[in-house]
């Protein structure tokens, strides 16, 4: 390994270089990891198209968290889209405190790898995340009895709320109808929220 991680003063890590020029070493290491993970060429190209600082930052996190192929491709895509939309570069995105924390804290590498993808997804879709959280909170507040579920459309892709009632006895059906009727106003509000009302 040509690269050695070292802890910085602020707890972040950076990369120390031995031997060849930094750019060459980074690219060699990127290619080596891409080869080991059978990373498709378009994704490798996307990685190598980053500036040197970003290439190195992503290499470091990919190695530290032992990202799998699918995670590397997902992360590269998310990073590229965030960097274009927010006019920033990938190294800056990866230096954000919530990602530095994932990189440095204890825990299994696979769990931290999943957390990295989730964190990047949250940054890529901040308003979707915020709206989903708000709607999920409104559903929790319904305190529905067992056997009734209110489910949001996946990724809020439509305006259709799914309400499921599971009953085995007529009494359960009566109870479910009563429970839903008692919550009609709150459910109506969730339907309105799903349609873009505050």
């Amino acid at each position: 390994m040509l690269w050695r991680r070292r802890a910085g003063m602020n707890g972040e890590s950076d990369l120390a270089i031995h031997g060849a020029t930094p750019g060459e070493n980074i690219d060699e290491s990127v290619r080596a990891l891409a080869c080991a993970r059978h990373l498709p060429q378009p994704h490798l190209d996307r990685w190598l198209a980053m500036n040197e600082r970003s290439r190195a930052a992503f290499l470091e996190i990919a190695q530290t968290l032992r990202l799998r192929t699918g995670q590397i491709t997902a992360a590269l895509e998310l990073l590229e889209e965030i960097s274009v939309r927010d006019a920033t570069d990938c190294a800056d995105i990866l230096a954000a405190p919530e990602i530095a924390r994932i990189r440095l804290h204890a825990g299994s590498a696979p769990a931290r790898a999943r957390e990295l993808i989730e964190t990047l997804r949250a940054r890529r879709f901040p308003r979707l995340r915020e709206t989903s959280t708000r709607l999920a909170g409104a559903i929790r507040e319904l305190r529905l009895p067992r056997g009734i579920s209110v489910v949001l459309p996946r990724e809020l892709r439509s305006d259709v709320l799914t309400i499921t009632v599971e009953v085995a006895r007529v009494a359960e059906l009566d109870g479910a109808i009563e429970a839903l009727a008692a919550r009609r106003a709150a459910i109506a509000r969730i339907i309105e929220m799903l349609g873009g009302s505050e």
Partner: peptide, 24 residues
């Protein structure tokens, strides 16, 4: 950046801005 709004794959197979934001 306009091609990168918060779109999700909708039921008609097209990527669209997620519903509450789009309708808002």
């Amino acid at each position: 950046p306009m091609l990168l709004d918060e779109h999700v794959l909708a039921d008609d197979g097209r990527l669209r801005t997620f519903t509450p934001l789009r309708l808002k």
